[in-house]
Design a protein around this nucleic acid. Sequence first.
DNA 1: CTATTCTACAACCAAATGGTTGTAGATCAG
DNA 2: CTGATCTACAACCATTTGGTTGTAGAATAG
Lengths: 110, 110
Amino acid sequence: MVVDQLRDADLDRLFQAFADATRRDIVTRVTAGEYSVSGLAEHYAMSFAAVQKHVAVLERASLVTKERRGREQIVRAHHDGLQRARRLLDEYETIWRQRADRIADILAEG
Amino acid sequence: MVVDQLRDADLDRLFQAFADATRRDIVTRVTAGEYSVSGLAEHYAMSFAAVQKHVAVLERASLVTKERRGREQIVRAHHDGLQRARRLLDEYETIWRQRADRIADILAEG
DNA sequence: CTATTCTACAACCAAATGGTTGTAGATCAG
DNA sequence: CTGATCTACAACCATTTGGTTGTAGAATAG
């Protein structure tokens, strides 16, 4: 199974984006409210540029979008992206859970 | 919010482990049946050592375990680890979905 | 107009990642 | 015992990652 390249690359970017506590926190924040990039940066013990890069990673993973408003860039949760992420996680989770359940059943029988 | 360090590190390792197509494929395989490390390695266009490293990453993320059987090392899905992964993903997903739903409602009203 | 704020982006750096080859120790087959 | 197989691990390499500082351009405030 060489698997679907497109989907693979998307999943790579998705999980990679989630594999950092700062980025997960950013996603949590922007699903709750509006933040400019500098507004986000205030909350982390790192440079503005570093936060800018984290936002860029989330953007490439289609988890957030940016929209310019005056001199600020507003970061928002990208709902299509988040939904897509959920669906992909669900699929994986379903496969693994079904198999895990089947194995649990077999172990229970034994 | 400086968040829970332990959980953060676990989540980092978890998502990092998932952020590679080969590793996701390995997890899928070992949830379905038994594989030795070399048995797994047969399926990928990379060296045995590379696959060994991927398995090690999954092991550190508590997603698989290894058990020696003769000269082979059998790789198995670690069900506690997978369950834990599921629970963590569910939590995140719940937070995000609730917020996304709320926002969707607001947008629908407007 | 000027100063400040917000963003973009380049250059740089250390550490981690994902791969390789090579060597060596166990275990099994004949 | 000997040879083949399976694993472990070290050393190495190129690329990516996560951070930094510095420079420069747009937009706003006064």
